[in-house]
Design a protein around this nucleic acid. Structure first.
Length: 592
RNA sequence: GCCCCCGUAGCUCAAUGGAAAGAGCGUCGGACUUCUAAUCCGAGGGUUGCAGGUUCGAAUCCUGUCGGGGGCGCCA
């Protein structure tokens, strides 16, 4: 938020160091002073001192930390007290600059007022990125294992938007493939003519799939029937196509309901079925170009990447792009899909795939192949890998095994538990509001637990933990938002505006403003690293600082000038929390 | 056999290579005639798996090792 000031300071320090014949670094790193209740920025001179020592220019017998302190003191002296700062000090090799409370608190509040519920957003970049996420399979269950993908993907989209990108949200639905054929086989033979129950479409579709797998495992001879059915699909037998269209629609309707509740929408929905034929043509082209090796009829069509690249060591290995019987695989369809995306959106700065980490090698194979085929945008493809959600005891959620917690069950339970808490905490609310709060709190709790951790860490799903509304969790942040809103509602004033404080700021106020000012940096980092975690952390810090402020600093009861300042601060907090929650895909309720 | 990820308080997790490794949960003890106590305050809890190395400085980077998880030609 204070980039220009810091740049000016950096330049002046650079000049001071040069004047003293000390090697100056290209740039200085500024960090917040890491002590609670303080408000300022810090940099240090350890690197400078070390470099000076290496150059043999350091005073004899002076150790690096000691020298860093000397330099810090010298710089502090030469710098004096810069405009807009209250205090400057050199401590243990660090140069600490404390903000002038009046000037900077007003600045932070003004920013929060100007940006409103987009507080923390960065300037537009004029770049477009595509994020592909969710990728559900029709004719299968939609379970908690799939939830992390949707929640992460949506949050990353919102964060990228806040970081100034234009985002194309893409979904890629697996509406064809062996699993669909197995489902159809089961349906035709054992459930012909049946229809899914209106409220339980996804569950019913998933059950039929698990049943199909079971039947085939019990009697492997039946696989021949499935292969025959796949051949009919391949020949586009009208009867099969009609059945496929009708049944896949049931899944799609179920997905729509899930996305509605999760608050997710897509700009472009791709289907595997639409890239299957282009994929087969592409495979022919790859064979012709010598990129793919046709080992049919004995074997499949293979891309031997390490051989093509002349790599001795196993790196990309080989993968199959087409089955020996000519039917398609994932790879058959992923290659043309990547091409299609850039045909439709040639200006994509990045094409991001939110896909679980187990497919890392596979994704690298796809990207490398496209590079070999000469597509200039191949280096803009990015696999955003995240770890899976397991059940306790390291049980993988699998629709084949039936070891799943269904999304609809989790969402129902979350809302029910949240509803019970609302009833207990705030019985005076009307029924409709209670329902809305329960939905916001229940869904928020689930989303927060999934986002507030490294993408690379496994989530072990646990009912109690996923639906714990206490501590570091969404309801804590939502509650802070509600409290802020409550103060503003009771203030009944239309004249709230950011102003310089006329009083000595309370340490809780300093800490709160300091945390508010860090939100833009959290957005920048979260966007750069594709990590909603940074937003989740900062949202908690702001909420925590606000709760402390709430307990220590009366707003409505304070004398007029103090009240005016604090009301503006409360507005800023409300905006910041609403913004951060939005970036996490979590609803910020007005009451709860 | 090769490759990737994870090991931090009893548990679940944080911590741009930087100041004393922080939260929550759980345990114990406090705070509602005061803007919503879904809150706050206090106490207790650590050789960051282990061993080397790089660095002024390592939970963080490198090497090795142990433990856990995952991936590696016709699943998705």
């Amino acid at each position: 938020m204070f980039e220009t000031e810091l740049q000016t300071l950096s330049n002046r320090i650079h000049d001071i160091l040069t004047e003293h014949d000390i090697p100056a670094p290209d740039r200085l790193d500024w960090t917040p002073i890491p002590f609670s209740g303080t408000w300022g920025v810090a940099t240090n001179f350890f690197r400078v001192a070390a470099q000076e020592a290496r150059a043999g220019k350091a005073p004899k017998g002076v150790k690096v930390p000691q020298r860093a302190q000397q330099i810090a003191e010298m710089v502090a002296e030469a710098l004096g007290l810069p405009q807009g700062f209250q205090k400057i000090e050199a401590v243990r090799g660090y140069l600490n600059l404390y903000f002038d409370p009046a000037a900077y608190s007003q600045r932070v509040l003004a920013e929060a007022f100007a940006q409103g519920e987009k507080f923390g957003a960065l300037p537009r970049r004029g770049q477009r990125v595509m994020v592909e996420y969710s990728q559900p399979n029709t004719h299968k269950a939609f379970h908690v294992g799939h939830l992390r993908n949707v929640i992460l993907g949506e949050s990353v989209c919102r964060i990228l938007e806040a970081a100034g990108y234009e985002v194309v949200r893409a979904n890629y639905i697996g509406d064809i493939g062996l699993h669909v054929i197995k489902w159809l086989w089961n349906y035709v033979n054992y459930h012909n003519g049946e229809q899914p129950p209106e409220e339980e479409k996804i569950r019913w579709m998933g059950d039929l799939y698990a049943e199909a797998v079971k039947r085939l495992e019990a009697n492997p001879d039946l696989e021949a029937e499935v292969r025959a059915l796949f051949a009919r699909w391949d020949a586009r037998d009208p009867e099969i196509v009609a059945l496929w269209e009708r049944t896949r629609q049931w899944s799609l309707e179920g997905f729509d309901e899930v996305y509605r509740r999760l608050g997710v929408h897509f700009d472009r929905v791709y289907f595997e079925s639409e890239v299957e034929e282009p994929g087969k043509e592409l495979v022919e082209e790859m064979i012709a170009k010598g990129i793919a090796t046709d080992e049919r009829p004995e074997g499949p069509v293979v891309v031997h990447l390490d051989e093509l690249l002349g790599l001795e060591k196993e790196t990309y290995r080989s993968y199959v792009v087409l089955r020996s019987d000519g039917t398609s695989l994932y790879a058959t369809k992923d290659l043309p899909l990547a091409i299609l995306k850039f045909q439709e959106y040639p200006d994509l700065a990045r094409s991001i795939y939110v896909i679980d980490v187990r497919q890392s090698l596979y994704m690298q194979q796809i990207f490398k192949t496209l590079e070999l085929m000469g597509y200039p945008w191949a280096d803009r493809l990015y696999h955003l890998a995240y770890e899976v959600v397991n059940l306790p005891g390291n049980v993988t959620m699998s629709s084949r095994e039936g070891t799943v917690v269904l999304l609809e069950d989790l969402m129902r339970e979350a809302a029910a538990r949240a509803r019970a808490v609302v009833e207990e905490k705030n019985p005076a609310l009307d029924e409709a509001t209670k329902d809305a709060v329960a939905e916001a709190v229940g869904m928020g709790a689930i989303k927060y637990t999934m986002l507030a951790r490294e993408n690379t860490k496994v989530v072990t799903f646990d009912w109690e933990r996923a639906l714990d509304f206490n501590g570091v969790a969404a309801p804590y942040i939502q509650y802070a938002h509600v409290r802020a809103n409550s103060i503003l509602r009771k203030a009944e004033r239309g004249d709230i505006a950011p102003a310089a404080p006329g009083h000595d700021l309370h340490p809780a106020e300093v800490e709160l403003i300091s945390q508010l000012a860090r939100l833009p940096e959290a957005v920048r980092r979260a966007a750069e690293e594709f990590k909603p975690l940074h937003i989740a952390n900062q949202a908690y810090e702001i909420a925590s600082a606000f709760n402390d402020f709430y307990n220590q600093c009366p707003v409505l009861g304070a004398e007029e000038e103090v009240a005016a300042f604090r009301l503006a601060l409360v507005v800023a907090v409300k905006n910041a929390l609403a913004s951060a929650l939005h970036l996490l895909g979590i609803t910020a309720p007005e009451r709860m």
